[in-house]
């Protein structure tokens, strides 16, 4: 298993922060910094889809996800003078997006109706739902940090290195957290559904 992951990650090994990486986006970033803000549109057009889908998956609200996507690109633009060319622009943007998503989830949780929480914990066993939907529902019940790692790894299909960079944690921790997330998923599915 580990070897497979290593092979998958090999092409992205240059993401390591010790040495500069070759990234086509770097030229565009330089042009944004030294020529014109309009060139930034190239980066927005290129990455708005993945960023939007990350938010959609994390917060399940299309309008909110669209708003968050705009905020992330504006934040990234403001932080661009501090961008380190040792990283891929995409990974760096994802890190901003993940932080934004986690902050948003935290903010939303403060306003969640107590009744809603109660309903989730007492949810009836879902017997008729198909496996994909049961899995999606179970993912939504995970803690934010587990949900984030599942979304990045499986829905956004990032490598372990990219997930580690986005979450600002070591790669080893990503593997461990993913396992813990799957274990929790299993327990949720066993407890509330007839998934297995």
């Amino acid at each position: 298993m580990k070897n497979d992951d290593k092979i998958k990650d090999k092409s992205l090994s240059e993401i390591s922060s010790e040495k500069p990486v070759k990234d086509d986006d770097h030229d565009i970033v330089r042009r944004v910094l030294f020529e014109s803000v309009n060139v930034y549109e190239l980066l927005v057009v290129k990455y708005q889809g993945p960023v939007f889908n990350l938010f959609l998956r994390m917060i399940h609200d299309r309008d909110e996800a669209e708003e968050m996507t705009q905020i992330v690109f504006i934040k990234a633009y403001e932080a661009l003078p501090a961008f380190s060319f040792e990283h891929r622009f995409f990974s760096w943007l994802y890190r901003i997006a993940v932080n934004q998503a986690l902050n948003e989830l935290k903010k939303q949780r403060r306003f969640v109706d107590i009744e809603k929480i109660k309903n989730i914990s007492e949810e009836a066993i879902e017997k008729d739902a198909d496996k994909d939907r049961l899995l999606q529902n179970a993912i939504d019940k995970l803690k934010d940090k587990y949900k984030a790692v599942i979304v990045l790894k499986y829905f956004q299909q990032l490598s372990y290195k990219e997930v580690a960079f986005a979450l600002n944690i070591p790669e080893k921790k990503v593997r461990s957290r993913l396992y813990d997330a799957r274990l929790q998923l299993k327990e949720i599915l066993e407890r509330n559904t007839d998934y297995f």
């Binding site: 803000v37 309009n38 930034y40 549109e41 927005v44 057009v45 708005q48 889809g49 939007f52 669209e66 996507t69 705009q70 690109f73 504006i74 633009y77």
Partner: peptide
Amino acid sequence: IDVSVRVI
């Protein structure tokens, strides 16, 4: 989605 014009 397309937010590029709005962002710029």
